[in-house]
C-alpha cells in the first residue's frame, strides 16, 4: 500500500555497501556496512576514521582501522548510505 521507506529499512538496504557516518562531535567514519541492530549499533568493515588532531583541531587525521569494528549507536548522528566520506563530499570539493 504505502511505499514509504522506514528509516531502518533504508539502513538495511545499505548492508554490503559503503556508508558514511557523522558522529555527534567532529568525528566521521566510513566503511562497508555489515549489519546493525535496533539501536543503530553498526558493524563495519574496512572502516576509516576522520577525526580532528588533538593538538591542532583544524587538521583532520585519517585513520584506517584495518579490521572489523562495532560502532556504538549512541553517538551516531547522521548516516549517508553509499557515502564514501568527507574526501568525496561537496564541502571538500568546494574548498
Amino acid at each position: 500500500m504505502s511505499n514509504r521507506i522506514l528509516p531502518l529499512e533504508l539502513i538495511d538496504k545499505t548492508i554490503g555497501s559503503p556508508i558514511w557516518i557523522l558522529m555527534r562531535g567532529q568525528t566521521e567514519i566510513t566503511g562497508i556496512l555489515r549489519g546493525f541492530d535496533d539501536y543503530v549499533n553498526l558493524v563495519l568493515e574496512d572502516a576509516v576514521e576522520y577525526s580532528p588532531d588533538p593538538r591542532d583541531k583544524s587538521v583532520v587525521v585519517k585513520t584506517e582501522l584495518k579490521s572489523e569494528i562495532l560502532l556504538n549507536g549512541n553517538h551516531v548522528a547522521v548516516l549517508v548510505p553509499g557515502g564514501t566520506g568527507p574526501e568525496d563530499s561537496l564541502a571538500s570539493r568546494a574548498s
Binding site: 548492508i15 554490503g16 549489519g35 546493525f36 549499533n41 558493524v43 572489523e68 562495532l70
Partner: peptide
C-alpha cells in the same frame, strides 16, 4: 546468512 553480521554476531566473535 546473506553476508550480514549483526552487532551480536560481532561480539560473539571477539
Amino acid at each position: 546468512p546473506e553476508n550480514k553480521r549483526s552487532p551480536s554476531d560481532f561480539l560473539k566473535a571477539v
